[in-house]
């Protein structure tokens, strides 16, 4: 959620379009039935997406929502390449120690392999969306630097 709010803030400031992606591995019996997965997950996430989008006040910058089943890292990298995205914003839980070894991290794999810059937002960071100094900077040239 921190990632989303940060992304909204950035997108607004950079006049950028935003694409919301959720990727998940299918679980259990659904694994054998890809079509049904898609249908189910679309349904299941449509509502959730709406909720988080309205919570993040990002209605006007988020132009697309995508739910794909599959390996998150692969999905993310594929989409980033496909959409020629300029920036990936991704949340991470920043596990350490034993948990880190056991679980690995989607964010880390994305950082290592992405073909565009990656903005990583940890869930526990202090005020992650307080990114700006308020007002927009006056156009360069008039400012003295």
């Amino acid at each position: 959620m921190a990632a989303l709010r940060t992304a909204v803030e950035l997108a607004k400031r950079l006049n950028a379009r935003m694409l919301l992606v959720h990727a998940d591995e299918p679980s259990g019996s659904l694994r054998s039935d890809p079509l049904r997965i898609d249908e189910l997950s679309q349904k299941r996430y449509a509502h959730q997406f709406q909720k988080i989008i309205s919570a993040s006040r990002g209605d006007e910058v988020i132009t697309e929502k995508i739910v794909i089943t599959g390996n998150p890292v692969k999905v993310i990298l594929d989409q980033a390449k496909h959409q020629k995205s300029d920036l990936i914003v991704i949340g991470t839980q920043g596990r350490r120690g034993m948990k880190r070894l056991m679980l690995g991290s989607v964010a880390e794999a994305v950082v290592r392999r992405a073909s565009c810059p990656v903005f990583t937002v940890r869930t526990q960071v202090r005020d992650p969306f307080n990114l700006t100094n308020g007002t927009r900077r006056s156009p360069p040239g008039s400012s003295t630097g």
Binding site: L4, N15, A23, I52, I62, S85, L87, V106
Partner: peptide, 16 residues
């Protein structure tokens, strides 16, 4: 940045 290319937000469901 706003042209053909979009800012790309990935939402990590578990994080939320």
């Amino acid at each position: 940045l706003s042209g053909s290319n979009g800012l790309f937000c990935l939402f990590d469901g578990s994080a939320s």
